[in-house]
Amino acid sequence: MNRYIKEIFIFIFIFSIYFLISCSEKYPSPESKFSKIKESGCTYCHLDAELLKKVAEPLPPSEDDEGEG
């Protein structure tokens, strides 16, 4: 009887380990597009005013009289 109980416990233990492993995420959960965007090289610069000030090239002054009418 004890032998059977021991085998049951071993089985439960192995099954639990297997269950825990098999239920872990096989694929990383998709990150939100927002978080991806936040991490890109684009936003690294374009969200940082101080950095932009350093790298932006000055523009020629605009003309006084605007446009077609």
């Binding site: 374009h46 969200l47 932009l52 000030k53 932006a56 090239e57 000055p58 605009s62 605007e66």
Partner: peptide, 14 residues
């Protein structure tokens, strides 16, 4: 209409 500085033109807001 005053012109923006170059860096202001392309500064994205959160």
């Amino acid at each position: 209409m005053p012109q923006l500085e170059a860096w202001q033109m392309v500064l994205v807001k959160d």
